[in-house]
C-alpha cells in the first residue's frame, strides 16, 4: 500500500474529486438560482440578486389587486382544531346560569322537542361559532339573532363550554335498526360530497362542524336546504354550501331522517 496522504491537493484523485464536485455545485447554483428564474418571463425578476432571493424562497409580497368585497356578512370566527377543548369549571358554571335564557327553546338540559338544535354535548367550538355568527349577522334567525346581539364574547365562550359539558341525552327517536344511507357512508365523490362523518365527528371532526346525532330531522333538512339555496352562508369559504348544493332532495331527506335517529 502507498503511504501517500489522502486529503492533500498533491493527491491527484483528491484534487480531481473536489474540483469536479465543486464545479458541478457552482454550475448547478448558477443554473438553478440565476438562469432558470431569469428564463421565466412571468416571474418579472429585476436583477441577479432578486433572482437568487426568489429561487431561494425569500417570501415576496402578494401583487396588488383590488379585492371584491362581499355583499353579505360572512363569518369572522377564526377556527382551529384545538380551540375550546379545555374548558375550565368557572366558565362552565357561568355558562349554566347564562343558559337559563336558552332553555325555553333548547330545553333545560340542552335537549328539546321544539325542532331547535339539541345543544347538550355539542362541540364548544360549534356553539361558540354560531353564537358569534348570529351576533355579527352572518347567520340570521328571528329568534336567535336578538338573543345573541346582547352577548359578550365571554358569555358565548361560557355558554359553549356549558353545553359541551352536558351529556348527550338519547332522544326518544333513536332507531338503531335504521341502516345508514349510502350518502352518509360514502358520500358521492364525483359530486364533491364526502362522507358526512369525515367532518361531523363520526369518523373525524373538522372544527366548526356540529355533531348531528339526535338533531331534529326538520332542523337538519331546513339547514341543508338553506345552505343549498345560499340563504344560509355562514359556513367559512362555502365549505357546507359546496356540498349541500350537490345533494338531491331525496338525499337530504335520508340524511335528516338518519341523523335524527342516531344517539
Amino acid at each position: 500500500m502507498s503511504e501517500q496522504k489522502l486529503f492533500t491537493l498533491r493527491n491527484p484523485w483528491f484534487g480531481a474529486a473536489v474540483g469536479i464536485t465543486g464545479g458541478i455545485a457552482v454550475l448547478s447554483f448558477l443554473a438553478g438560482l440565476i438562469w432558470l428564474p431569469l428564463a421565466q418571463p412571468d416571474l418579472k425578476i429585476s436583477g441577479i440578486w432578486d433572482a437568487i432571493c426568489s429561487a431561494a424562497g425569500v417570501p415576496r409580497a402578494a401583487p396588488q389587486s383590488s379585492v371584491q368585497q362581499p355583499d353579505f356578512k360572512t363569518s369572522s370566527v377564526v377556527l382551529t382544531s384545538e380551540m375550546l377543548t379545555h374548558p375550565d369549571q368557572v366558565s362552565i358554571g357561568r355558562g349554566a346560569t347564562l343558559a337559563q335564557r336558552c332553555a325555553i327553546c333548547h330545553g333545560p338540559e340542552g335537549v328539546s322537542d321544539a325542532n331547535s338544535p339539541n345543544l347538550a354535548g355539542q362541540f364548544a367550538a360549534v356553539t361558540y361559532k354560531e353564537l358569534n355568527d348570529f351576533k355579527a349577522g352572518a347567520r340570521v334567525n328571528v329568534v336567535m339573532s336578538p338573543f345573541a346581539a346582547t352577548m359578550s364574547n365571554q358569555d358565548m365562550l361560557d355558554i359553549a363550554a356549558y353545553y359541551a359539558y352536558l351529556p348527550r341525552v338519547p332522544s326518544n327517536k333513536i332507531d338503531a335498526e335504521l341502516a345508514a344511507p349510502r350518502i352518509v357512508v360514502t358520500g358521492a365523490p364525483m359530486r364533491n360530497i364526502p362522507p358526512c362523518g369525515a367532518c361531523h365527528g363520526d369518523i373525524d371532526t373538522k372544527a366548526g362542524s356540529p355533531w348531528l346525532g339526535g338533531q331534529s330531522a326538520v332542523y337538519i333538512k331546513a339547514q341543508l336546504e338553506a345552505f343549498a339555496s345560499g340563504s344560509r352562508h355562514n359556513d367559512i369559504s362555502q365549505q357546507m354550501r359546496n356540498i349541500a348544493r350537490q345533494m338531491t332532495g331525496e338525499e337530504i331527506d335520508q340524511v335528516a331522517r338518519y341523523y335524527a335517529a342516531q344517539p
Binding site: A55, I236, S237
Partner: peptide, 18 residues
C-alpha cells in the same frame, strides 16, 4: 419561481382569498 405566504386561519377575513 417565488414564495408568497398567506395565513390559512384567516383567509376568510381579509385579503384576496375571501
Amino acid at each position: 419561481g417565488h414564495v408568497e405566504t398567506a395565513d390559512p386561519k384567516t383567509l376568510h377575513l381579509t385579503g384576496e382569498f375571501i
